[in-house]
Write a protein that binds this DNA or RNA. Structure first.
Lengths: 139, 139
DNA sequence: ACCTTTTGTAACTCCTTTTGATACAGTTTA
DNA sequence: TAAACTGTATCAAAAGGAGTTACAAAAGGT
């Protein structure tokens, strides 16, 4: 359970919201559907709200709904909204400074990380939430 | 220290081997350069050897060297050689079966994972170990 | 106004994974 | 045969994610 499942859950949650249209959905309901704890969902929704993808309302009759049409929400936005880690981590301990290779390795790898992240985002930009809905329904 | 730094270390290690040419390098030396434990290095080299990227020899005067020229080792091969996880994890607990969204979500996300992984590999295929050497040296 | 419902968050435990470390068997060289 | 390595098993330590409980703050209904 260590790997980041936040993106997966986020897509799931957003799909539920998309299906609910303008109706506000409660974290309790979503949690039941995703099969987890409501707080986990609220934490996630908090991130999505910061990114402007959803709108939540507190209080009785509160809940969350999409901030935009499904066709205007790209999965790349979802990905960027979450505090997911990079594809690979840099060295945990800094390499030995006496090693000529180690000295410049970090800079190279850091640049590579950014390139990869860009690739991922480009790929995810091809899908909107509406695409997801269609795939889910036709399956 | 939870995130996977194996890819980063692998590139570092392979660069050291590339710089050493045909000479066999000992895990102790590499560990000193990367600033970690020799066993961590040997575990990693074990993966790289399975993938046919390096050749190790046991016994006195043993050590490891590249199995091919740096120009013939692509970073995508390094990536594939390692048991790194996926970019995002699927749900840890299976979604509620009563939820129509949850039922088909896993299949969609699984396909998406594969697509992303392909993107990463395509990007990494553009770099050979020789490219890394050049970047490291010119910096 | 008050009570209920619901979000937002802090704090804590639990679990998993990665890393680091020790130990030792098996191999090879001299 | 002794010394120097790799290959691995095993364990402890560290970090992070996920699940929980608890509660303050906000909003609606009566």
């Amino acid at each position: 359970m260590a790997a980041n499942s936040q993106f997966a859950i986020a897509v799931h949650v957003l799909t539920i919201l998309a299906k609910s249209g303008d109706e506000r959905v409660k974290s309790d309901y979503i949690a039941g559907s995703v099969n987890t704890n409501p707080v986990v969902i609220r934490r996630l929704l908090s991130n999505l709200q910061e990114a402007g993808l959803v709108v939540s309302q507190v209080g009785a009759a509160g809940g969350t709904s999409l901030a935009r049409q499904p066709k205007d929400i790209r999965l790349s936005e979802v990905y960027k909204a979450l505090p997911c880690g990079e594809v690979f981590a840099l060295h945990s301990k800094e390499p030995n400074r006496d090693c000529p290779v180690g000295r410049n390795m970090a800079a190279f790898l850091c640049g590579l990380q950014k390139e990869i992240d860009k690739s991922i985002e480009e790929r995810l930009r091809q899908y909107t939430l509406r695409d997801v809905l269609e795939r889910i329904d036709e399956a």
